[in-house]
Design a protein around this nucleic acid. Structure first.
Lengths: 223, 223
DNA sequence: ACCTGAACACCGTTCAAGT
DNA sequence: ACCTGAACACCGTTCAAGT
C-alpha cells in the first residue's frame, strides 16, 4: 500500500548521483540551505534516507556534487565589444548566476570550490584580464579580486533595497548622536541606495575595473 | 552532589545577557559556528539549557547580542598620514577584526548587521571617504564597496595559502586540457599566491582605492 | 524572580539487515 | 546490487513545573 509520491518524475526512474544532486539544488534554490537535509531530500525523492548514502559518502560530498550541477548552469555572455564591456558582461553574468543559485554563496563560504566544473566559469574571466595586458601573476590577483567582489556582493548585499528598507536605515542613521557620528549622519541620504541592488553592484564594479585598467595602462607604459 | 563546573569564573557570578554573549563569542572564535548550540553554551556556563532563554528570546537574538559584544573589540587605527594611508589603515583594522572573530562573517551572511554597535566602526571609514571629497551619496556607495570587499575577502579567501595548497592548485590547473582552458593554464603560475593572504588583500584594496581616488579627482576637476 | 527537566520535532550517520 | 529501519548522539524550543 505505497502511494505514488512523485506525480511528474517517475519514482522508478533510476536514482543516480546526478539526479540526487539536481534535486538537492532545486531544494536549495527553492527553500534555502536550512531546508536541505538528507532526510528531507530522500523524502522528496521518494526513497529512504539511507538510500542516498549509496550515492554520496556524506552530506559534504552531496554539496560538492551540487556545485558541479550548478556550474553547468552558468551562461557565458557573447565575447563582443571592447575589453571593458566584455569584463562587465562577464561579471554581470556571474552575478546573475549566483542570484539564480543563491545557496552557492553559502556553500562557497563553508569551503573553497576547487571543482574542475567551476574552472570553466573562471576561464572566461581570466581570458579577458590576460587580453588587457596583465601578466599571469597579476591577472590571477585581479581575477581573485573580481571573484571576491562578486561573491561578496552576492553574500552581503540584499537584492534591491525596498523604499521601506531605505527609509528605515535613513531614519536609524539620523537618530544617531550628532557629535559621535557626524560622518554617518552626513551620508545618511545615500546609505539606503547603497545597501544593494543592481546600481550598487555596477558602481563597485566600475571602480574596481577602473583600478585594474589603470594598472594595465601603467604596465603598457613601463614596457 | 553537584561538582563545581567552572574552575576560573565563578559559576555563581550572576548570569546576564552580556555574560552569555561573551561566552558565545569565545566559543565561536575557538570552535566555529557549528560548535555553538544553546545546549553546549549552557553546559559551558554550568547552567541548564533553558536558563539561557531567560536572557535571550531565541538563538537568533543571542547571535545579535554576540555581534554587539564583538563590535566593542574593534580597534580603530590612529588617524595619521594622508587620506590614502588612513583608508588603508582603517580597512586593515577591519580585516584584522574579522580575523579575530571569524564567525562574524558567517553571522553577517545570515542576516544584515544593522546594530547601532556596528555603526561606530562605519563612522571611521565614512569620515575618510567624505574627506576625500566624495559627496554623501557617492561616499555611501564607496563605503559599501569597501565593506563588500573586506567581508568578501574574509569570507572567501583562506588565510595565507600554504606552499602545499599553492602547489596543488598549480598542478590542478596544469592538468586542465590546453585547448579548453588556455587562459587558466597561462595564469596557473600566479593562481596559488592569489588564493588569499595579506599580499592578495593589499593588491585588491589598492586597485579599489585607486578607482575611488580617480573618481574623487574627477569630481574635483568637474567642480 | 529565576531556573530547569521532560518532551517534541527535528538533524547526520553507523550498523545490521532485508530483497 | 541496491535499498532501508532502527538506533545513537545530537539540534532549538515549548511547556509545565520547581525553588
Amino acid at each position: 500500500v505505497s502511494p505514488p509520491r512523485q506525480p511528474a518524475t517517475d519514482r522508478s526512474a533510476a536514482l543516480s548521483r546526478e539526479t540526487i544532486a539536481r534535486a538537492a539544488l532545486a531544494l536549495l534554490d527553492a527553500e534555502g540551505l536550512d531546508a536541505l537535509s538528507m532526510r528531507r531530500l530522500a523524502s522528496d525523492l521518494g526513497v529512504g534516507t539511507m538510500t542516498l548514502y549509496g550515492y554520496v559518502r556524506s552530506k559534504r560530498e552531496l554539496l560538492a556534487a551540487v556545485v558541479d550541477v550548478a556550474a553547468e548552469d552558468f551562461v557565458a555572455p557573447p565575447a563582443t565589444g571592447d575589453l571593458r564591456a566584455r569584463a562587465t558582461a562577464f561579471l554581470r553574468a556571474v552575478s546573475d548566476w549566483l542570484e539564480r543559485h543563491p545557496a552557492l554563496v553559502a556553500l562557497r563560504d563553508e569551503e573553497p570550490i576547487v571543482r574542475p566544473s567551476a574552472f570553466s566559469v573562471s576561464e572566461h574571466g581570466m581570458r579577458i584580464l590576460l587580453d588587457m595586458g596583465l601578466g599571469p601573476e597579476e591577472a590571477a590577483r585581479a581575477f581573485r579580486l573580481l571573484f571576491t567582489y562578486v561573491f561578496g556582493h552576492a553574500a552581503f548585499s540584499p537584492r534591491a533595497p525596498t523604499p521601506d528598507e531605505q527609509r528605515a536605515l535613513h531614519a536609524a542613521l539620523l537618530s544617531l548622536p550628532e557629535d559621535e557620528f557626524p560622518a554617518m549622519r552626513t551620508a545618511a541620504a545615500g546609505a539606503g541606495a547603497a545597501l544593494g541592488g543592481e546600481a550598487q553592484f555596477r558602481y563597485g564594479l566600475e571602480r574596481i575595473l577602473d583600478g585594474i585598467e589603470a594598472r594595465a595602462a601603467q604596465l603598457r607604459r613601463d614596457r
